[in-house]
Simulated assay, not measured.
Amino acid sequence: MKRVLITGANSYIGTSFEKYSSEHYASELSVDTVDMIDGTWKQKDFSSYDIVYHVAGLAHADVGNVSDEIKAKYYAINTDLAIETCKKAKNEGVKQFVFMSSAIVYGDSAPYGKTKRITKDTEPEPANFYGDSKWQADKGVRALADENYIVTVLRPPMIYGKGSKGNYPTLAKMAKKLPVFPNVPNERSMLYIENLCEFLCQVMIRGEGGIFWPQNAEYTITSDMVKMIADASGHKIHVSKGWNWVVGLARVIPGKPRGLANKAFGNLSYEQNMSRYGFTYNVVDLKASIERTEC
Rank of each mutant, 00 (worst) to 15 (best):
I6A: 15
G8C: 12
Y12D: 07
S16D: 00
F17D: 03
K19F: 06
E23H: 06
H24T: 00
L29V: 06
L29W: 05
V31A: 07
W41C: 09
W41H: 14
K44S: 13
S48T: 15
Y49C: 03
V55C: 12
A61G: 06
V66L: 05
D68F: 09
T79N: 13
L81G: 03
A89D: 04
G93P: 07
V94I: 01
F99K: 15
M100A: 14
S102G: 14
A103D: 15
P111I: 02
T119W: 04
S133K: 10
V141N: 03
L144I: 05
I150F: 00
R155T: 08
P156H: 13
A175C: 10
L178Y: 01
N183D: 10
R188G: 15
R188W: 02
M190P: 07
E194Q: 03
E194S: 04
E198P: 04
F199N: 04
Q202G: 08
G207K: 01
G210C: 12
N216P: 09
A217T: 04
T220G: 11
K227I: 02
D231K: 12
G242A: 01
W243P: 09
V252W: 10
V252L: 06
I253W: 04
P257D: 09
G266K: 06
S269Q: 02
E271P: 02
L286C: 01
